[in-house]
Design a protein around this nucleic acid. Structure first.
Lengths: 351, 351
DNA sequence: GCGCAAAATGTAAACGGTTACATGTAACGG
DNA sequence: CCGTTACATGTAACCGTTTACATTTTGCGC
């Protein structure tokens, strides 16, 4: 029964042998320097309970002189929350991507939250890994995923990790969606009002819910008319390529509706190369109103989506869910606005 | 001396009273279910030491049935590394921003690292907060900051947290920089070769090192000639506005060199509105070769910078520093390439 | 100076993992 | 049948915080 180690509690040994990096200064160092206990240091730093002013000053001075920076991971572990939300995005192209993040980031900062971003995930496996890598570091998630993935994602998720979806359709989670269908219908009315009948549509990826709803709006408006749908993937390149097929069509359409602005920009460029005047010979319209849209030539008629607002609302709903876990599942819709610029014109003002 | 608590080690009480969220499943739950100790579970999950196959299977089954997900924050605390690097960016505009992140992200994923991003930081105080929020969560940092901030940033940093700078000039840290000066000189030679003498320059923010070096290249090439410098801030809007001043200048310049592509795009748009033909009446060139550059009208002559490569190299250097902390401070330069498209033309081909 | 409540501070368990070291067990040679 | 060894597994300290509870100090009335 002789214990091989000392019976007396040994003083906390600062480092184990195999550590690599230089020791960072911890709350214990500050406590030692200030001549108080770690509890007191913690109290001072978190301004939670009453500490004598003199003690407070000593602690603060010690912390400052040692350049103490609390280890947020340790704190998160202890209090079981991190004041951080995770953002998981698929491989989203360019500006949309950064606008969403910006929206969340700005909102988060106001509430003293931090964000942890992971983007460019092409498949479900990768997304799963990312989610795993976030467990313990985030209090909740904002997820944008091709909706085929949502279900399998759920399974890899720690239970009870609140999550808000962007532009996906799942019954069990709060979600913020764009009024894609309504926006597409509005754009189609605009084109119809200009006299266009033969309207081509460049689609986004089929796995994307936004993409599908925009397509649905196009189809609904084209009931009875002959549709021309070219498959795209939301990149400028796809828009550029699609134009070749559209120009070859007989009868040739008089307007092109791209499922997002990036593709519309690509289309404009291809039309210019082909010597086709926009909007006199061909109208081109997009969707999203990304920042560049007003600066292309001619400026792009599009459907404005407040992308940053999308992020902001997602964050708001997430925080709400964090505060009241039992509240019912909320789903919000972001309305859209038709922005008429120079890339769309009356049909028949051809040469 | 009578201890008020029991002398016997009590079994670990699972939760303290005040917890809010539902309990997540931990390694202890898995151990209990598999009928082994936590050490064994840990060994199985990390494939580190030899565990009997039968035991392994039991553990794996238990983990699966409980949907166990390890808490990465706890692990990070324990092993003192997180397999995560932090990315800190100022308020960078649009595509540049996302390209850098993508570059780092792709490289990081290959090495099984994760990234933690924080963007849109306007001032030093905010950046300090962000850095603090990363302490304990990251093994190293990639930082892009207005260089006035670097010094004060250093002070807020935990000692010994490796950091790689993007496009900043600081002696004490590894840095990846773009050959801005060389690129600007190359572009100026291109314009001179087309016969341009009166060349206007739209600058970026003065606090930005890239911006300053590009300006320096312009000035060096313009020795002796009359310069026209308009202050900008890297946004399309700034480029758009700058054109007003440039058109009012007498004698009017024959070419505009914008310090980045976004401003060049804004300038193109303004020139189009003003009815000035590019490149016949005015050449316009940019810097960066962002994705949109080839799709504007006319396609933009610019200096290609492999932005994603910038991120990739930054990550590589960071990992290198992590592995060999004492190795000398490395600084690398990303070379640039002149990309000639349609927005620049021979001077004198005016109406 | 004493008793007592209130205020300030300290002690140590817990958060969820990893791992050094201790312990138990099976195989094997003698 | 025992000692040795190698292998498998368990125990508990530790990572850096927070915080319930215990303990000490202070202030105050008498």
């Amino acid at each position: 029964m002789t214990p091989s180690r000392s019976d007396l509690p040994r003083p906390r040994r600062r480092r184990r042998a195999a550590n690599r990096r230089a020791p960072a200064v911890t709350i214990h160092d500050v406590a030692a320097r200030a001549g108080v206990s770690v509890a007191t240091v913690s109290r001072v730093l978190n301004r939670k309970e009453i500490v004598r002013e003199e003690t407070t000053n000593q602690v603060l001075a010690a912390a400052k002189s040692l350049r103490y920076i609390p280890n947020v991971a340790a704190r998160a572990l202890s209090i079981r929350r991190s004041q951080t939300v995770g953002i998981v995005l698929p491989d989203v192209h360019g500006e949309f991507f950064s606008e969403v993040i910006r929206g969340i980031d700005v909102a988060a900062r106001k509430d003293r939250y931090h964000i942890l971003v992971s983007g460019s995930h092409s498949d479900v496996v990768e997304m799963g890994e990312v989610l795993e890598a976030m467990h313990g570091r985030v209090d909740g998630l904002v997820v944008m995923a091709p909706d085929v993935a949502i279900d399998s994602l759920r399974e890899q998720l720690p239970r009870d990790l609140p999550m808000v979806l962007l532009n996906s359709s799942d019954e069990r989670h709060p979600a913020i969606t764009i009024d894609n269908y309504g926006g597409a219908r509005a754009m189609m009315r605009h084109l119809a009002g200009l006299g266009h009948k033969r309207i081509a549509f460049i689609t986004g990826p089929a796995s994307n819910a936004d993409s599908r709803d925009r397509l649905r709006g196009y189809r609904q408006s084209m009931r009875g008319a002959t549709r021309l749908e070219i498959a795209g993937d939301f990149t400028e390149h796809a828009g550029h390529e699609a134009v070749k097929q559209i120009l070859a069509a007989d009868p040739r359409p008089t307007a092109i509706f791209a499922a997002n602005d990036s593709m519309a920009v690509g289309a404009l460029s291809a039309l210019h190369e082909a010597g086709i005047d926009v909007p006199r010979q061909m109208s081109v319209v997009g969707f999203d109103d990304i920042p560049i849209a007003r600066y292309v030539n001619p400026p792009l008629t599009t459907i404005r989506v407040e992308i940053a607002e999308l992020g902001r609302r997602a964050f708001a709903v997430l925080v709400e869910t964090l505060a009241h876990p039992k509240s019912r599942v909320r789903r919000e819709t972001i309305e859209t606005t038709l922005i008429v610029r120079k890339s769309s014109g009356r049909q028949g003002e051809t040469s």
